[in-house]
């Protein structure tokens, strides 16, 4: 489901080593590699493209300032997302006050494993429902679905326990299903088995 192919691990370790050794072009490659996915997540978290871009920029700056402290073998993606999340949390109040609502858009041809295309209306309904989730739930859900982060990595990013990360994803899905299943399920359901 992720929109981004994962980079080869060895290649990334080399990049980090080079960046830690002072090779700025290696860090530029890291920026290039992770910019879009951070921006995308932050857009969905902040619901404001301009703020998302600012925080993305800020994230890489902080990351560069601290790249020496990054421990070899750790998860770079989770580390970057955690820095981004910290910046987001720090600015949450300001974002709430200044946000211009982001109008959800749907990809033209979303891949659907069950072989049934949802209607555009249904997709928009889902997008709006996701936007209405509390940001903690939305952030965790999108990290899980978009970035394929494990619950452990989500916990690392959001500064919570693994169980809380699992709980947030669970609750986000539950809320979405509560909102959407009456619209998306067939009108006449079979009675529940017990």
């Amino acid at each position: 489901m992720s929109n981004h192919p994962e980079p080869p691990i060895g290649d990334e370790a080399d990049l980090i080593r080079s960046a830690q050794a002072g090779d700025r072009s290696a860090f530029a490659t890291i920026v290039d590699r992770y910019w879009e996915r951070l921006y995308r997540w932050l857009c969905r978290l902040t619901r404001d493209a301009s703020t998302a871009e600012d925080i993305t920029q800020e994230t890489f700056l902080k990351a560069f300032a601290a790249i020496q402290r990054f421990q070899a073998g750790s998860n770079l993606k989770a580390w970057l997302f955690r820095i981004a999340h910290n910046s987001f949390v720090n600015q949450r109040r300001a974002i709430k006050n200044n946000r211009k609502p982001l109008v959800p858009e749907i990809a033209e041809d979303p891949k659907n494993p069950v072989g049934e295309a949802l209607t555009k209306e249904a997709m928009l309904l889902i997008a709006e429902a996701v936007a209405k989730l509390p940001s903690d739930f939305r952030g965790a859900l999108v990290l899980r679905i978009d970035e394929r982060l494990s619950f452990r990595d989500i916990a690392e990013v959001m500064g919570i326990t693994e169980e809380t990360a699992r709980w947030r994803v669970f609750k986000a899905r539950q809320k979405l299903m509560g909102l959407l299943s009456p619209d998306l399920l067939p009108a006449k359901n079979e009675p529940m088995s017990s």
Binding site: P113, L118, V142
Partner: peptide, 24 residues
């Protein structure tokens, strides 16, 4: 269970729809 099957189908569709939301 046809009911759970339909419910599961919606859950999977929702997951994919979440992944399909584009950003500006």
């Amino acid at each position: 269970c046809a009911s759970c099957q339909a419910w599961h189908r919606v859950l999977v569709q929702v997951e994919y729809a979440v992944a399909s939301v584009t950003v500006p």
